[in-house]
Amino acid sequence: MRKMWLWIGGGTLFFGALVFVNNSNIFAVRPTTRATILAHRGLAQDFDRVGLQNDTCTAARMLPPTHQYLENTIASMRAAFEAGADIVELDVHPTTDGQFAVFHDWTLECRTDGHGVTREHSMAQLKALDVGYGYTADGGRTFPFRGHGLGLMPSLDEVLTTFPRRRFLINIKSNDPNEGRLLAAALRARTAEEAGRLMVYGGDAPIDALRNAMPGLRTMSRSTLKACLFSYVGYGWTGMVPPACHNSIIFVPTNIAPWLWGWPDRFLERMRYVGSLVFAVGPYSGGDFSSGIDTPEDVRSLPHGYGGGILTNDLQTVAQALQRSKGLGDAGPKGGAP
């Protein structure tokens, strides 16, 4: 009996040591470049985030402006790349004339002088709007961007033509599978090199349709992300990467990251091997995944030498914090020119 228990104990120790070595960062290849910065909506106006709901008009609760740029515009994207962003996230809606408008909101009333559902307009109609019309930092007494956003809502084609060598993360704002097919048709019209710089996330149905049409494109939906992370927590200790994690975009909330086997270096190495990109985001609390690494404290909370991606809503603050953080490297640009 004693011999049996010795065998069991020895086997348990051996198994534990094997799991430890397999998931240790000691033998992982640590990236030598700095963290990749993903700028959410480019260089955007910040707003009060307390008590936000899905239908909250964020332009009406803008904080006092620190720069002149409006989200999802060409000027905002150019400024974001110049400030150190490697990838810019943008939002798209199909238009009645077969294009995709780059704009965040489902409806037009919050930010613009227009009315109605965004996708129920032509691109020409959307181009005629003032995208800075609704921004106010003092409860509606003044509107500092009113009159300065005329004609600034771009089409997706305009963005990709302006920045043919830059990387973008495209957000589909609906759960309509047809929108995934329409976007696939639009992206197939680009060169293979341009399409290779693009990633897409959004509702489960359009992402499933898009992935079927363009299996080589990196994509993510809420269901694929949860399947990836939960499955990896379950059996990632083996070194196996769940199929849901392959050729994907993986948002890792900072409060979930410690549960991921081999976080950060071994985890990042495994995801790179299956063609996926990882971005650290803010803590997950049951809502969406739009909270980012937005403060110097958030940057300091990342592991020393972290070489994955960072999603941020405050590019200027985070780029400066990265420059000051020796462990995360230089925050200067590392992407191609527009």
Rank of each mutant, 00 (worst) to 15 (best):
M4L: 15
W5L: 05
W5S: 02
I8D: 12
G10W: 13
G11W: 01
T12D: 06
F14L: 15
A17R: 09
F20G: 07
N22P: 06
N22G: 11
N23F: 10
F27E: 07
F27S: 12
A28T: 10
V29A: 12
P31C: 05
T33R: 13
R34D: 13
A35D: 00
H40V: 00
H40N: 01
R41M: 09
G42F: 10
L43R: 08
A44M: 14
Q45Y: 13
A59P: 01
A60T: 14
A60V: 04
R61E: 05
R61Q: 12
L63N: 10
P64G: 12
T66I: 07
H67E: 03
Q68P: 12
A79S: 05
E82W: 05
G84R: 08
L90D: 02
T95D: 08
Q99S: 10
F103W: 06
H104C: 04
D105G: 04
L108F: 04
E109H: 01
R111H: 05
R111L: 08
H115W: 05
E120S: 13
E120I: 06
T136E: 06
A137K: 07
G140Q: 03
G140N: 03
T142Q: 06
T142V: 06
F143V: 02
P144T: 11
P144V: 09
F145W: 08
R146D: 13
L150N: 10
G151M: 01
P154E: 02
L160S: 05
R165Y: 13
D176T: 12
G180I: 09
L182K: 03
A185N: 07
L187T: 00
L187A: 01
A192G: 09
A192R: 12
Y201I: 11
D208T: 15
N212E: 13
A213H: 11
G216P: 15
S223N: 07
T224Q: 09
F230S: 12
G234C: 10
T238C: 05
V241G: 06
N247A: 07
F251D: 07
W261D: 00
W261E: 03
R270E: 03
R270H: 03
R272P: 07
V274L: 02
G275S: 02
L277T: 12
A280Q: 04
G282N: 01
G287N: 14
F289D: 14
I293H: 01
T295P: 07
E297D: 15
S301C: 00
L311C: 02
L311Q: 07
T312Y: 00
A319W: 10
A321Q: 12
Q323H: 14
K326P: 09
D330F: 13
A331N: 14
G332C: 11
K334C: 09
